[in-house]
Amino acid sequence: MEVRTIKVFTTVDNINLHTQVVDMSMTYGQQFGPTYLDGADVTKIKPHNSHEGKTFYVLPNDDTLRVEAFEYYHTTDPSFLGRYMSALNHTKKWKYPQVNGLTSIKWADNNCYLATALLTLQQIELKFNPPALQDAYYRARAGEAANFCALILAYCNKTVGELGDVRETMSYLFQHANLDSCKRVLNVVCKTCGQQQTTLKGVEAVMYMGTLSYEQFKKGVQIPCTCGKQATKYLVQQESPFVMMSAPPAQYELKHGTFTCASEYTGNYQCGHYKHITSKETLYCIDGALLTKSSEYKGPITDVFYKENSYTTTIK
């Protein structure tokens, strides 16, 4: 009895394709271990004539594949690729409408935090270190965002349907971005203890939790000093293409032309909904596939993004 075979390709990165001759009487799992086709788990399936010449994702289970996976995804987590594939199996079914010149995501599976993050990423200057993220990001900007969303979920250790947080998501993504040249110098002034300067680099240099107003941050924000008295913390120097200011959701007025974009969060910790506000020729609110415009805006804002380049204080 002759062994019926077909020729397929296996890959971990969709760049390096490895030619395989597979036995049609055995499952993919018996031949390769966990195997995925377009995100779908085909591990328990036997090869079919229609699979001839198709590319299958496999887990990096030998040295060659491990090197290829690390170079593309910059992670050695053995569960990463499987999590990416199972997320992709959902995100490829989502709709990605162009809204006001940006790629958004039609609401499904509690994905409003991903839509808000995706919209924000198209408006701030950011370059990702893992080629996987950078490639998928370019495709997302062009309207094909399924891979990018699935990668975000995998890097953030999230599953489809789980509630997510924009600030946490951005923080994970910033860790995989090139923020080497970003720098922030802060000064804390206390009447009792004097003053202390701190220099922050990388992710810490672009994120701040405690106030939404970048102007206020430049002037000074009140913080408790270690001595128990009130101290003032203010920005001395900022070198970065953008800054992200966050605070627990509270009524906040966004003035046209003073910011790049913002995240609105309605609801409580267990259950809520994100919308995205962007400042173009007027203010726009993007909620999944829905767009509304207004000249002014007041609502429960939790993150505001500002364009920056270089700032030095005039406070002496």
Rank of each mutant, 00 (worst) to 15 (best):
residue 11 T to R: 05
residue 11 T to A: 06
residue 12 V to H: 07
residue 12 V to I: 10
residue 15 I to S: 08
residue 16 N to I: 10
residue 16 N to Q: 07
residue 18 H to R: 12
residue 20 Q to K: 11
residue 23 D to R: 14
residue 23 D to H: 13
residue 23 D to G: 14
residue 24 M to C: 12
residue 27 T to P: 12
residue 27 T to G: 09
residue 28 Y to K: 05
residue 29 G to S: 09
residue 30 Q to I: 14
residue 37 L to Y: 13
residue 38 D to W: 11
residue 38 D to G: 12
residue 39 G to N: 11
residue 39 G to C: 12
residue 40 A to Q: 14
residue 41 D to Q: 15
residue 42 V to P: 04
residue 43 T to C: 14
residue 43 T to K: 10
residue 45 I to M: 13
residue 46 K to V: 10
residue 47 P to S: 06
residue 50 S to V: 12
residue 54 K to Q: 14
residue 55 T to E: 09
residue 56 F to G: 04
residue 56 F to Q: 05
residue 57 Y to Q: 08
residue 57 Y to N: 12
residue 58 V to L: 11
residue 58 V to A: 07
residue 60 P to E: 10
residue 63 D to R: 09
residue 68 E to H: 11
residue 68 E to G: 07
residue 69 A to V: 13
residue 69 A to Q: 15
residue 75 T to A: 14
residue 84 Y to P: 01
residue 84 Y to T: 04
residue 87 A to L: 08
residue 89 N to R: 10
residue 90 H to R: 08
residue 94 W to I: 05
residue 96 Y to A: 02
residue 98 Q to V: 11
residue 99 V to I: 08
residue 101 G to Q: 09
residue 103 T to I: 10
residue 103 T to M: 06
residue 105 I to V: 06
residue 105 I to H: 04
residue 109 D to C: 04
residue 110 N to F: 03
residue 112 C to P: 05
residue 112 C to W: 03
residue 113 Y to D: 02
residue 114 L to C: 03
residue 115 A to S: 08
residue 118 L to V: 08
residue 121 L to D: 03
residue 122 Q to T: 04
residue 124 I to V: 07
residue 125 E to T: 13
residue 126 L to N: 04
residue 127 K to F: 08
residue 128 F to R: 03
residue 129 N to S: 09
residue 134 Q to L: 07
residue 136 A to F: 09
residue 136 A to G: 11
residue 139 R to D: 12
residue 140 A to F: 08
residue 143 G to F: 01
residue 144 E to C: 14
residue 144 E to L: 09
residue 146 A to H: 08
residue 147 N to Q: 13
residue 147 N to F: 07
residue 147 N to D: 10
residue 149 C to G: 00
residue 151 L to K: 03
residue 155 Y to D: 04
residue 157 N to D: 11
residue 158 K to I: 04
residue 158 K to C: 01
residue 160 V to Q: 01
residue 161 G to A: 05
residue 162 E to I: 00
residue 164 G to P: 00
residue 165 D to P: 02
residue 166 V to S: 05
residue 166 V to L: 08
residue 168 E to H: 11
residue 169 T to N: 02
residue 171 S to I: 15
residue 172 Y to E: 11
residue 174 F to V: 04
residue 174 F to C: 05
residue 181 S to K: 08
residue 181 S to P: 07
residue 182 C to H: 03
residue 186 L to Q: 15
residue 188 V to M: 08
residue 191 K to W: 07
residue 193 C to N: 02
residue 193 C to T: 01
residue 193 C to H: 02
residue 195 Q to F: 15
residue 196 Q to D: 10
residue 197 Q to D: 07
residue 197 Q to P: 07
residue 197 Q to I: 09
residue 198 T to F: 15
residue 201 K to W: 11
residue 202 G to E: 05
residue 206 V to I: 10
residue 206 V to W: 01
residue 206 V to S: 01
residue 206 V to T: 05
residue 209 M to G: 07
residue 210 G to L: 01
residue 210 G to P: 04
residue 213 S to A: 05
residue 215 E to F: 05
residue 216 Q to I: 07
residue 224 P to N: 12
residue 226 T to Y: 13
residue 227 C to A: 01
residue 227 C to E: 02
residue 229 K to W: 11
residue 231 A to W: 00
residue 234 Y to S: 08
residue 235 L to Y: 01
residue 235 L to T: 02
residue 236 V to W: 08
residue 236 V to D: 04
residue 237 Q to E: 15
residue 239 E to Q: 12
residue 242 F to M: 01
residue 247 A to F: 03
residue 251 Q to Y: 11
residue 253 E to P: 06
residue 254 L to P: 00
residue 256 H to G: 08
residue 259 F to L: 00
residue 263 S to M: 06
residue 265 Y to D: 01
residue 265 Y to E: 01
residue 267 G to C: 05
residue 269 Y to H: 15
residue 270 Q to A: 12
residue 270 Q to G: 08
residue 274 Y to E: 00
residue 274 Y to W: 00
residue 275 K to S: 07
residue 278 T to H: 07
residue 279 S to D: 14
residue 279 S to E: 01
residue 284 Y to S: 07
residue 286 I to S: 01
residue 286 I to M: 03
residue 288 G to N: 04
residue 290 L to D: 15
residue 291 L to I: 14
residue 292 T to V: 10
residue 294 S to M: 13
residue 295 S to C: 08
residue 296 E to V: 11
residue 297 Y to C: 03
residue 300 P to I: 15
residue 301 I to K: 00
residue 301 I to D: 00
residue 306 Y to R: 00
residue 307 K to L: 10
residue 307 K to D: 12
residue 309 N to M: 13
residue 311 Y to E: 06
residue 312 T to Y: 09
residue 313 T to F: 11
residue 314 T to V: 09
residue 314 T to G: 14
